[in-house]
Amino acid sequence: MEDKKNISKKMILYALISCALCAMLIAVFHELNVIHEIRNEDNKDIPVYKAKYAFVSSDDEDELVKAVYDAAFNYGAQRDIYVEDFGALRTGNYSIEELLQMAVYSAPDGIILCGDNDEEINDVINQAVDKGIPVVTCVSDREQSKRQCYVGSNYYTMGMEYAKALEELVDSDDDTCLLMVPETLSTVSRNTLITTIMGELASKNRNIVLDVQPVDTSDNFVVEEKVRDLILDSNASPDVVICLNPNITSTMYRMLVDYNRVGDISVIGYYNSESILKGIYKKVIYSSVTVDAVAIGENSVKAVSEYIDTGFVSDYIPVDVERIDGDNVEKYLN
């Protein structure tokens, strides 16, 4: 009897010890798995690229530019091409010419020049092309330079869309209209746009006066100040404002709400960022003309690669322009 008791006690003790050992062993394997996973995490996701394209833009904060870069980067990454945002994280206050110059010095396989820029940049573009680096411009073109290709909408089409929106919005030809354009928009592009709008309105027998105000879009504070001044000075406030930049459009929407001037000034914007779409949905922004940023980004990479591979590429790759208003905004919101 005593022996049986001792044996059962011993068995319980052995079972407990075995359980403890098993638990410890499981814990060891768990910890080993943790180490293994961390190591795997370290080892994976290390992409290797076979080429680098420099992406140089006038304004990294611009939502359209951001969207174009993201599209270009993703498209390039799928093809082992690293699209380097050349201005990103470099805190120095570099002009787009300087950034492009540095990009040329860095000897990339290709350059994508995005956004508005000055005519002085043509020399640097030519320098790059002379060094055998293909340059593709997007969103805004430098047709006088030696760039290989332009990807984006043309300002004629955009002008037509803006003219249609104006015609719908403005009842009386006495209403004042203001065109807020980024300073960096080339004169040619600006003139093309204004001429198209005026021409289209004239063809419809509308005689609307269109004032033009350049805005320094490289600094958000400057944009905000300009817009605030425009809204608060009721004497100078136009009836309709056409914003040719996503930042100006967003700022205008925000300021109108903040200063309770919704309805006093009608806004025709540019691009389809989230805040702009929200503005359209809430009928603060009447309409917005937008381009397909993803198509621009992808086509830009495609154009550079095509030129590297074949030595030839189309001079202009068009991207569709669309107008968003209260009727179709839900499609974009979804």
Partner: peptide, 21 residues
Amino acid sequence: TTIEGTSFPAMKDDLKHLSDE
């Protein structure tokens, strides 16, 4: 100068060419 990684993959290549220039 291998273009790899997630943090400035082309930075070393850039630096090499920039240094040469």
